[in-house]
Design a protein around this nucleic acid. Sequence first.
DNA 1: TAGATCTTGATTTCGATTCTCACTTTTGAT
DNA 2: ATCAAAAGTGAGAATCGAAATCAAGATCTA
Lengths: 156, 156
Amino acid sequence: MASLKDNSAERQEKKEILRRYIEEKGLKSTVQRDLITDTFLKAKTHLSLEELLREVRKKNPRIGYATVYRTMKLLTECGIAVERNFGDGQTRYEPIPESHHDHLICTGCGKILEFEDERIERLQYEVARERNFKVKSHKLELYGLCLECQKKEKRT
Amino acid sequence: MASLKDNSAERQEKKEILRRYIEEKGLKSTVQRDLITDTFLKAKTHLSLEELLREVRKKNPRIGYATVYRTMKLLTECGIAVERNFGDGQTRYEPIPESHHDHLICTGCGKILEFEDERIERLQYEVARERNFKVKSHKLELYGLCLECQKKEKRT
DNA sequence: TAGATCTTGATTTCGATTCTCACTTTTGAT
DNA sequence: ATCAAAAGTGAGAATCGAAATCAAGATCTA
């Protein structure tokens, strides 16, 4: 819900995190980094690098592949982006949401649904604690068929 | 537990599945496929292709890369192996266990622990059902630090 | 503004995976 | 057992995403 309402405020917070990280590490802020970060944060879906580059080049066609790779690595490092790998050989990125969510992936049509479930989260931490693990992050993906693809399958 | 006791019976079942799949699709059974399948099913850990190939070549040094790739793809297709991607750029394979398990991955030392939790499984199915999804498989990975690496981190 | 330092973009390199193709093996019918 | 058709194999080439290289350009601090 919140992510639809105050999207831009959220973006500002994240850019602030990046700014601090850059300062802290003695890095520099550049127009490329700003543009890529903005484009990335505004995107609604899980972008692959290719897709992100395409978007970015609409604004500035001179941006190179490497820069996008490097910037996404930076965003991942400073914790405002997450890498995802849904098994199609393409790493995808998505902004870290305040409330962590997981994914339902339809293996029929490739549709990706997001969901979150407090109860599952809690159990994960419990399981980890029992094993003396300190969880930093997690990944939960459910693969299956969406309603439409279930129907399609029956016809075959 | 069970997986330690009747390992070989389990292996037989899986090979039976493969045999049926091969017959059904009009494929052929070969010494290479048998060897790779056996080696894979006997392995205790999540093998990368490199590792699997190395094992396989101990028995038959003439086996090529491509064959191992192709066979693992076949095993994945017929449902007795699963691909895993823990983010180190290497696809790993593991036999599908009767009781599905998930992974705790230490980002410090790379250690991988397996666990299973009925409650989490149940919730997953519930969540999927609410969204009209029919789950075929899932992936749950918790990333964090094991006890030793937590200690190491404090020292830094 | 200077200069030290970091960043960029084009290109190369790398590593994992897939493809290609000539040759071999399996299989089912005879 | 024999044969031909179909599938599989192995070696190397091709591919593709990601990372490294490096000369030229931008940024920042004093």
